[in-house]
């Protein structure tokens, strides 16, 4: 399982969204890495990509609202990380569509998404939790 309890930041809404994000990414990776031929998995992969585009934006918005509510000093820098990832996903999505669903491209996307998500939640988001704890 991709999700680890140590990733929790102690905010129920954000933790629930993180868990859902990890669950979806895990399902995405299972489909992406399955042995079946590309034609069989392309529809499922595309559905997940569409979901991610919407869900990531919704989650980032909620997380940023929380950061503002507690006066998190790293808000601007964190927002930039979110913006960068959303831009990457949208840019990738366009390139992928133009390539007529090229498998190599989506494999590259999967690798980056996995590493980015783990680092973001395990490192960047934990700073929010540390600040909230210190603030009390």
């Amino acid at each position: 399982m991709l999700w680890k309890e140590s990733y929790e930041i102690g905010v129920p809404l954000i933790d629930a969204q993180h868990k859902e994000l990890f669950r979806r990414v895990e399902l995405f990776l299972q489909v992406l890495r399955s042995e079946v031929c590309w034609d069989e998995k392309v529809q499922k992969v595309n559905e997940t990509l569409e979901f991610m585009k919407g869900y990531v934006v919704e989650h980032f918005r909620d997380e940023e609202e929380y950061q503002q509510s507690i006066g998190y000093p790293g808000y601007e820098a964190h927002k930039q990380l979110h913006t960068g990832m959303v831009e990457y996903v949208l840019e990738f999505s366009k390139k992928y569509e133009q390539s007529n669903n090229d498998e190599q491209l989506i494999q590259q996307f999967g690798g980056k998404l996995l590493a980015w998500l783990i680092n973001h939640v395990a490192a960047e988001d934990q700073r929010i939790a540390d600040y909230a704890k210190k603030k009390g």
Partner: peptide, 22 residues
């Protein structure tokens, strides 16, 4: 990549290269 994904990767491909690049 095996640790991050919880899956078994046996060869370097576009996914692995992209993950270690990130």
């Amino acid at each position: 990549v095996n640790i991050m994904s919880g899956m078994q990767f046996d060869a370097v491909d576009a996914f692995v290269t992209s993950a270690v690049s990130e």
